[in-house]
Design a protein around this nucleic acid. Structure first.
Length: 123
DNA sequence: GCCCTGACGTGAA
DNA sequence: ATTCACGCCAGGG
């Protein structure tokens, strides 16, 4: 069985998603050093199956929707596991601004304006 | 090798 | 919000 550095990197990236947070396929691919290879991430997960101790439920599409058909067994299972970590779906999607692992730049800028001006020198 | 199908992403209409 | 067209590329037939 030839080694698959790519797959390994992807599995590691997935393992790194903290509980209660989620990441998109593309994000994982990028973190694994494989930008643009979102589909490969899906492939790896399919191959891995439920047996692998990977937090597969924390991986979803870039728009916050789960990758499975809304009434499929897998969809429900993923939804259940996410709920168990406090991640909920609203309108069938997860709010990436709240649960995303690497929140995007817009989100950063949107960040609640510091209630108090940042580092005021002693106030 | 060619064609089709994907646990995808993005931009345009 | 939806649909479409592409880009991507590993596998299966």
């Amino acid at each position: 069985m030839p080694i698959r550095p790519d797959h390994q990197a992807i599995r590691e990236a997935i393992s790194g998603i903290p509980p209660g947070r989620v990441a998109s396929y593309g994000e994982i691919a990028a973190r694994a050093g494989l930008p643009g290879r979102a589909r490969l991430v899906g492939r790896v997960l399919r191959d891995a199956g439920d047996a692998a101790a990977l937090p597969w439920h924390r991986v979803l599409r870039a728009d916050g929707r789960l990758a499975f058909a809304p009434r499929s067994r897998d969809f429900l299972e993923q939804k259940r596991r996410l709920a168990a970590e406090g991640v909920s779906l609203k309108g069938g999607r997860v709010d990436l601004r709240g649960f995303g692992w690497q929140r995007d730049l817009d989100a950063e800028l949107w960040a609640p304006a510091p209630a108090s001006p940042v580092r005021r020198r002693r106030g």
